[in-house]
Design a protein around this nucleic acid. Structure first.
Lengths: 250, 250
DNA sequence: AAGTGGTCTAGACCACTAT
DNA sequence: TAGTGGTCTAGACCACTTC
């Protein structure tokens, strides 16, 4: 009996060496395991951890990209204190619950709306479907304690989500995976400033006309086919969006 | 006399193989050199271009990160049409003139202000200097034709920039390099929505109270020392900020 | 089963920084 | 000059998709 474990779990990955090294180094960085902010040389790390320098470099590249470290040719690799301030990198937001948790909040989700409508011309064009096709609209409010922080409106072609028994409170990517039709690969997002109108302002618990940021975005699957159109509104006084800007490509 | 050429030029780089491969592939992608959107296998590319697969993979990783291509394990690598829409990646903005050029504009720069003041408590803390230390403030307006698009205010400790003969119209990183003291390595930026006040609104040519996006950011050198504090305001109707959001780390 | 991208190795040489 | 990160090679095996 060649008993294969981990049978039913949806998660297939056994962490790659690079993943493990990344996690290990991140732990040491956050735990102040490197006294003066200097990280050992790549050669030393490779020897210590028993992997090749390539693996070490892959891990360091990730940490550099996250802003956790800075590398300087000829000099060494160093912990990057300002970079560590950044809790959620804008380009990697995938679930607002996680974002709020990263900010130290205890998030909760309220489904404000969950209905089926038909696509208008603009939405049909965005999603590559026909005008009048059925679309599921899910409106969710993310709070920390009782304070609203993020409001999202997702519009998904009805055929991509499973029947009525799914929980609309789960993240969109999970909703789509449950549907089995399409899998979310990436978003193209526009950052749009606006003065909140009465309805959205009320739901977010701020005065109408308050300046705020919204994301207008389209999510695509790996085949570059659009699968979801979304708009998100943020309470910027509670959730500051941060990012690192660098000159060079990685 | 071992005459070393390229003596006076500031640019040291002879493009790396990866750079060249990246440029080559990008050209073919934009020029529709790949008929059905399918890019040859990494092994084939390596053989065709006469470099190792590692070099090819480095180049493809960059293009993937820019959103120009999508890679799918087991299937292949493909041109990413939606990703090609993105002209300037938010995380790599380094000069607004370049950003505007990428959007197809012909930019011009106006220096609205260029003066020396003293740091208040907050600025001193941000820049790691003492309250009352001298600070150069440069306010610039970027236009396309005569239409204002971006307004920036940069605050730099006076010691980091050269004497009075420098041209404040050049990008901040160039200003600092000319000063010779500090070199800009990266920014940590906050995206802040706001209703434009009368002064800024007037300079940008919009009505006071218009909702807009601003960046509040601090630039650091490679030693993680702050070297510049900046605020930028955008005409979002003329310059949409876009980014790609992905789940996984690279 | 064949072909693709994903991971990993071991080693080489170069460019740059420190001392 | 010694040590560091940056680039590049050639090859191996694995996980996954496609046919």
């Amino acid at each position: 009996m060649t008993n294969e474990e981990a049978s039913e779990t949806l998660i297939t990955r056994n962490p790659s060496l690079t993943d493990q090294v990344t996690a290990h180094l991140k732990e040491r960085i956050l735990g102040d395991g490197f006294e003066d902010g200097r990280i050992p040389s790549e050669t030393d790390l490779a020897a210590d951890l028993g992997v090749s320098r390539t693996t070490i470099r892959d891990a360091l590249s990730r940490l550099e990209h996250e802003g956790a470290i800075v590398r300087r040719q000829g000099a060494g690799t160093f912990v990057n204190r300002p970079g560590l301030q950044i809790k959620s990198r804008l380009e990697e937001i995938w679930s607002y619950e996680e974002v709020l948790r990263d900010h130290g909040y205890l998030p909760s989700v309220d489904v404000l709306g969950h209905e089926e409508t038909v696509a208008d011309a603009r939405l049909a064009a965005d999603l590559g479907i026909d005008e009048g096709d059925a679309v599921i609209v899910v409106e969710k409010l993310f709070r920390e304690n009782d304070t609203p922080v993020v409001l999202t409106v997702n519009q998904i072609p009805a055929g991509y989500v499973a029947g009525g028994d799914v929980d609309p409170a789960q993240p969109v990517y999970a909703l789509l995976e449950a549907g089995g039709e399409r899998r979310l690969a990436y978003y193209v997002s526009e950052i749009v400033p606006l003065a909140l109108d009465g309805d959205v302002a009320f739901k977010l618990g701020v005065a109408a006309g308050t300046a705020a940021i919204s994301f207008e975005e389209i999510g695509y699957d790996a085949d570059n086919e659009p699968v979801v159109a979304a708009t998100s509104y943020f309470r910027d006084d509670l959730l500051r969006l941060r990012l690192i800007r660098r000159k060079a490509a990685l």
